[in-house]
Write a protein that binds this DNA or RNA. Structure first.
Lengths: 248, 248
DNA sequence: AATTTAATTGCAAAAACACGCAAAAACACG
DNA sequence: CGTGTTTTTGCGTGTTTTTGCAATTAAATT
């Protein structure tokens, strides 16, 4: 392998994961540590990355990691970590869009091997960073508000899918009313997603609890898992615990 | 073996594998290292490949390196500005992916009113920022390399579309060979895109000129517009001017 | 503070490279 | 056809680049 190719490989890794470990590169490229160190040093000289003890970081790392713009990011990370346990190798997973799902995808373990269907372009792009993940983007009209595809075509395609697990964000959840939404199209979409998955996990930051909106998606019983950032025994969840669903 | 034959052989190897080792060529062509080096140097002078220690790399293999400062961004903006003139209100436009197209979308005038079909999630997200634009994302398998959807499903959907204009980036263009590509799937995809648009504009930074890769997409005559960052009368375009296509 | 882990430095061998030179082949032209 | 010129090619020599190893230093971990 030519040096230039190694450099390209390293830069691809960096741009993909924002970071890279010297030891990983040694294995992946089967060269000595010294060579990798020299490569990294040369890339630093070319101003293409930061070097740190143990590896290197992307130059855009600081800007991309510090997206404190994402509302309640910490909570979403907690939720993501819980949800990841539901995903097993070989599964077919269907996901919606939204920042919570996106956070989940970013937290996935490197080696994960699964098939993902998604209606969110951003989720698709993020999923594509995992080598052993097959990504199928469900196409259709693209919604400017929710940044997902929707409409008849999407629903038609969903009807042909059989997924093991559906992960969806939520606008509102209520112990009696179940899942609800404001927009007709999104409502239809969620129904279709529920219909094609064996199990559904709803990712929900606590402040969306106990809210009921105009349109009903499904009763609580249709959901398999409710995942919040709260402790399982938290008071706020008591009315949900009485229902037929797992709380994580 | 004649020198020209050796050169052709080397270029075939390069276009096939994106790279070539000096030592391999010495063996394959049974000539001395010096001859190979001279050959490579001449091909570099003719602007047909990159030379690196140990061998040479394809020019088109300009890997998605430094994506913080998108490669040749200035050129791409010039191209974008030219291409935008082709888009009229009310049109149905089909776009591919790639950084050039993405730059074009970012340069669109705010008030633009049109319908866009696209196979690129990133383009879709960017297009969604324009209020009067309807965005339809064509779904299917998502390619980790080229960041577009591809495969049978995409082609099937494309066959149902009738677009006024197709905007596509390019890996390589050649006055005799026309548009060419390295990957089968992408090749099929581009063919399908061409087939469903009345006119096609190819966006191409000048360094991709005069390169022919393994798989043929279409002859030059199938393209309506060739858009580069160069002046229309630039010498480098002379061989394209002779053909049946508009150069912008 | 002790131990493990990663970085740095200098060194040496191998590989790749550049340059000049000369033999051979191809070419030009009266 | 003969002679002079250019092109092409391989070889020898010296230089540079690349790479791994060993010894030392620095950083993190406990």
């Amino acid at each position: 392998m030519l040096k230039k190719e190694r450099h390209d490989f390293i830069m691809r890794q960096i741009n993909l994961h924002n970071r890279v470990l010297t030891s990983d590169l040694v294995q992946l490229l089967t060269v000595s540590e010294d060579t990798i160190r020299r490569d990294l040093q040369e890339l630093v000289d070319a101003n293409l990355l930061y070097k740190v003890h143990g590896g290197a970081l992307s130059k855009s790392y600081h800007s991309s990691f510090d997206d404190s713009t994402v509302y309640a990011r910490d909570s979403k990370i907690v939720i993501a970590k819980k949800a990841i346990n539901l995903i097993k190798d070989g599964m077919v997973v269907l996901t919606g869009g939204g920042t919570t799902i996106l956070e989940l995808v970013k937290q996935l373990p490197q080696g994960i091997s699964a098939t993902f269907f998604t209606i969110s372009p951003l989720v698709a792009v993020e999923l594509a960073k995992y080598n052993n993940v097959e990504v199928i983007l469900i196409g259709g009209l693209f919604s400017k508000n929710s940044q997902v595809t929707y409409g008849g075509q999407v629903i038609a395609q969903l009807s042909e899918i059989k997924a093991d697990l559906c992960l969806m964000g939520t606008s509102a959840i209520h112990p009696e009313e179940g899942l609800t939404d404001t927009y007709w199209e999104i409502n239809q979409l969620k129904k279709a997603m529920l219909a094609c998955a064996k199990r559904t996990a709803v990712l929900c930051i606590s402040e969306k609890l106990d809210i009921a909106l105009r349109l009903r998606v499904c009763p609580l019983e249709s959901i398999s898992y409710l995942i919040t950032e709260l402790d399982i025994n938290d008071e706020a969840l008591s009315r949900y615990r009485e229902k037929e669903l797992n709380i994580l």
